[in-house]
Design a binder for these strands. Structure first.
Lengths: 345, 345
DNA sequence: TTGAAAGCGCTAACAG
DNA sequence: CTGTTAGCGCTTTCAA
């Protein structure tokens, strides 16, 4: 079935009337230094003519560089990670690298995946976007001996990371709700123990304080990153004595859960309650009403991370530390001024 | 940075007091034939002890098999493909293969991707879920000389494919709407020229005919696989003289667009109009109202395809042709009997 | 049953 | 500037 004999470097060399090593030099030497222009052209022409493709395996074996990046993500059926992967793939391919995707589903995670990739010399470096517990993750990654860049999270003592400016995004979002006239603003937080969740919570609190409002802890509820979490946390908020007039959800998932809970309780959005989320996804627009959102550059996160890792690998950078700013507010129908002061409660 | 010296086969052999070739035999021989039990145990113990991982590149170079599968998809930020990939990854890893993902975005596609993967000997075979035009895709794939399995589509003359039973799913969905009492059922079709779209349309028509209803062509509209397509197609249906009382959308995306259009027009769901979709996704539950859906086994499609391709590669199968049945109806709040005969139009 | 030897396709000293 | 040589880690005849 696989009888298409692929042309080897030697074939190109023969066709050009030179030795394989010379052909190799021509095809690899970036600076194009140590080879005669005329020879170079002949080799290049032959390679082109024959449609030469270097055998990646052989090259990798020889150089101990596979030109492959690994990316470890906790889920694939999550638009956030899907977008990051799209960006990373694009950037990697543009620089001649391939991307190997690994699902690391269990939060506990016995770094099997990382080791499999590393020790088999499959990948040159790792993009890590998993949710593993901090200490064991650091240990595992160190154990692989591979360079790695954290994506969408930060870890103490790890110099290489790409994250969003969660603090500022949450701060600006809250400020927007304040500007509409809201005073009691609820927050469906993410994982408060995690980087993203804690930063967003802090930004939310900072905005309130800046407006002279003392953050009310009963208005904050850890809803995680699921619809269900948002649903339940919102129900609790609705049952409280003093309801908020607006909700800032840390993510689209929990925001959609909030919408569901509000709908079930007969609370109109945005008349009785404004809702907005951090992150803007295609579904934001499909929901009823469409959700106002603070947008983050998701694909760019993948691009920056992949490029950073490649820079690391190629010695073009010592460290990759990047905090990406948000892309601004997308105002949709789910937010309004708190006119109707009297909810039904 | 990469100073962790990985142990080679030779190290294991030395530790076990045998030659590398013997160690290789032990570690590879499936039947465990031609080696002394005692020697075998010693080698296995040594490998275990040292935590030996074969160098994939070296093995690939020698055997001309990379133990890597390629999967070409048109989008990643589409739950359908995400699920397929999850299934394929899982199955591949379980059998010792890795999965390389390629985005082939352009419908026209100059098979660059396929060739890059094939000629560089990166992958042993291809899972193809792209939307490329039929003739050129077949030509390109043949050109790679690689075995491949079509996923979620069929092509004349290509013996290897895994698809869903689109016809039956659409037929059963339509039958369900009929059983609720609907007689005028609209269909938001996918790409009618494509395999999935045409099959679903045919199933829809078959159910109507079986119920003694002559399919009304004005009730069918090609909406594609986007929210926008569904939105527009639904608007057209609403403007028609005789509206349907129910809509069967070929996909969740177009179904959500339908919901949007209905909402904008003040048509209540399900009181004035029932809506259901083929495919069930997480967002189906987030929408308002949650959408009744005919569920397909998406991950399983990836699993079956990956296993089939590996069987092909390992000579365990001559051909992979599989039509997966649907997983049944998920009835939610978007469908009901057509009580309110008088819509407002 | 096991070891010796060759070589997959490529790159990187080292000569010339 | 270019050819010769060696070898990355592994599998696979071929002998012993």
């Amino acid at each position: 079935m696989k009888e298409i004999k692929s042309i080897r470097l030697k074939d190109v060399a023969t066709a050009a009337g030179v030795d394989a090593s010379t052909a190799s030099r021509v095809l690899n030497n970036e600076a194009g230094h140590r080879v005669a222009a005329e020879t170079r052209d002949r080799v290049l022409a032959a390679a082109e003519e024959l449609g030469y493709r270097p055998n990646v395996m052989a090259r990798a074996l020889r150089t101990a560089r596979s030109h492959t990046l690994g990316i470890a993500v906790p889920q694939l059926d999550n638009p956030v990670f899907a977008q990051i992967i799209i960006g990373a793939t694009t950037a990697a391919q543009a620089r001649g690298y391939e991307l190997l995707i690994s699902l690391v589903e269990q939060v506990a995670g016995g770094g099997g995946v990382y080791n499999r990739l590393a020790h088999a010399s499959r990948v040159d470096g790792l993009l890590v976007a998993t949710l593993d517990e901090e200490a064991s993750l650091k240990r595992t990654l160190a154990g692989t001996g591979l360079p790695y860049v954290l994506v969408n999270r930060k870890l103490r003592g790890v110099p290489n990371y790409v994250v969003h400016d969660n603090f500022e995004a949450a701060r600006a979002s809250t400020e927007f709700l304040l500007s509409l006239g809201h005073r009691r603003i609820g927050h469906l937080a993410g994982r408060i123990s995690g980087y993203n969740g804690s930063q967003r919570l802090a930004g939310y609190q900072a905005a309130l304080k800046a407006a002279g409002i003392d953050p009310d802890p009963t208005l904050v509820s850890e809803a995680g990153y699921t619809m269900d979490g948002g649903f339940r946390a919102t129900q609790v908020m609705l049952a409280a004595k003093k309801r908020p007039t607006a909700i800032l959800a840390a993510t689209v998932m929990s925001g959609s859960g909030a919408l569901k809970a509000l709908h079930a309780a007969g609370v109109r959005v945005p008349e009785d309650m404004s809702v907005m989320t951090i992150h803007d996804l295609p579904i934001s627009e499909m929901l009823q009403p469409p959700l106002t959102a603070m947008r983050f550059p998701l694909q760019e996160m993948g691009i920056v991370a992949a490029n950073g890792l490649i820079d690391l690998l190629e010695g073009k950078a010592e460290t990759v530390a990047c905090v990406l700013p948000h892309e601004g507010l997308i105002v949709r129908a789910s937010t309004a001024s708190p006119r109707a002061r009297s909810a039904r409660a």
